[in-house]
Design a protein around this nucleic acid. Structure first.
Length: 400
DNA sequence: CCTCCACAGGAACTGATGGCGT
DNA sequence: ACGCCATCAGTTCCTGTGGAGG
């Protein structure tokens, strides 16, 4: 007679769990787990050594593909150094920001400012000129004689934005020390793209890239070791089968050597195994995990699209494997049905390439001679999946 | 060999939003 | 009250292009 939900919850609570410490299965929660980045840690530490002698270190650039642990290493080394110089007369102020999370230049500067304890009043979230924001950051550093270290993650992304808006933010950042009477500013840039420097002004390159460190990709062996260590801490003993571990390492390591992905994979596999009341993580669980992660990613990105993007996706669904022109007229029909103004074809082609980037559709450029040039798009996800995710959207209900 | 299709995709612009300093 | 500044979705205008068909 008990509620089925209660039953489920009871079962989950009392059921056996094979994961004993979930935190360890999140890539970024590293207590002191070995990253196999000894030499890189050493290099980062080396280049920051001047701090210990109470002087400003050179700016630093760190390269590496995603999931190579570059951010973790930088953070770890910096916080160690910070601990050590805490009480000296050269304490450092650590400021971290990710250019991808803060989509605009303004947002990034504000996030940096907040960490320097500039409040809403001293630094509003909008309304100011960029140069004004920058001035206020420098003023704060100057006033409080801070030795600030700005860690800017995915700095290549920021470089693109700066290039597009013709902003010389990098120049200002790298030359900030010339404007400071007291305190100092050191820049640590982290980038996925080894070639991004070419886009920058040569004056900026020389001061930004005073020191450079490259993180190589993990190979499958290293990924396996990392996984083993995490598994030892996180799972109950002997609950992950050897083949499952190998598959995990092979899947993540084979492509890009992405340790983050490998760890996420083993975590999801573990969760699936628990849900099935299994006491071992098997190859099957890992396979299911890859599938599930893929689907989750697709579903969330599908849900997060604005209305017109959703309409475009539905238009592709109606005319699968067709050209931009056909998709566009199908889209126009859908617009009529839901009673919205249609957007221009230019905008729709742009949307299509944006959607393509997320991997939900794939496009193929085709030259048909006298019949012109088109891109033909195909869905990579099942139509059921799309229908299911769009079912909840009120304006789309009738068409789905 | 030339033409011309049916778009791709870059660049510059617009208008709304939101909030600043003076 | 006013001008200014940054951002964003969207528009307008544009140049570029591989190859079937003449």
């Amino acid at each position: 007679m008990s509620d089925p939900i209660d039953k489920l919850l009871d079962a989950a609570e009392s059921g056996k769990s094979i994961i004993k410490n979930r935190d360890i299965l999140h890539f970024t929660h590293i207590p002191n787990i070995i990253l196999h980045r000894d030499s890189e840690q050493e290099q980062v530490a080396q280049s920051l050594l001047p701090i210990l002698k109470h002087s400003r270190p050179s700016n630093l650039l760190v390269y590496g593909k995603p999931g190579t642990g570059k951010t973790l290493v930088v953070k770890k080394v910096l916080s160690k150094i910070q601990e050590r110089v805490e009480k000296s007369n050269f304490p450092i102020k650590l400021v971290y920001s990710n250019s991808k999370e803060e989509t605009t230049l303004y947002g990034l500067l504000v996030s940096l400012g907040r960490q320097l304890n500039l409040n809403e009043k001293e630094l509003p979230t909008t309304g100011l000129a960029i140069s004004e924001v920058f001035k206020r950051l420098l003023n704060r550093i100057d006033e409080e004689k801070l030795n600030a270290i700005f860690v800017i993650d995915e700095i290549d992304y920021l470089a693109q934005v700066a290039l597009k808006t013709h902003n010389d933010i990098f120049y200002n950042l790298t030359r900030a020390n010339e404007r400071l009477k007291q305190g100092s500013l050191t820049l640590v840039g982290i980038s996925n793209d080894l070639t991004f420097k070419e886009k920058l002004d040569s004056r900026v390159i020389s001061s930004l890239g005073e020191e450079e460190i490259v993180f190589t990709n993990y190979n499958v062996e290293q990924i396996k070791k990392i996984l083993e260590e995490r598994i030892n801490e996180a799972f109950i003993e002997n609950s992950v089968e050897e083949p499952a571990l190998n598959l995990c390492a092979a899947l993540a390591g084979g492509e890009h050597g992405d340790a983050r992905r490998a760890i996420a994979l083993i975590r999801v596999a573990g969760e699936i195994a628990e849900r099935q009341q299994s006491n071992k993580v098997t190859i099957e669980h890992v396979r299911d995990a890859t599938k599930k992660m893929e689907e989750d990613k697709e579903e969330t990105s599908l849900k997060s699209y604005p209305l017109h993007e959703k309409l475009v996706i539905l238009a592709i669904l109606k005319a699968n494997g067709s050209s931009t022109g056909e998709i566009y007229s199908s889209y126009k029909n859908l617009c009529k049905v839901v009673g919205r103004d249609e957007l221009t074809q230019r905008r729709v082609t742009q949307m299509l390439s944006e959607i393509e980037l997320s991997g939900i559709i794939t496009g193929r450029l085709i030259h048909q001679g006298i019949h012109g040039r088109t891109k033909k798009y195909k869905l990579t996800v099942s139509s059921e999946m799309i229908k299911n995710t769009f079912k909840d959207d009120l304006t789309l209900q009738d068409i789905v």
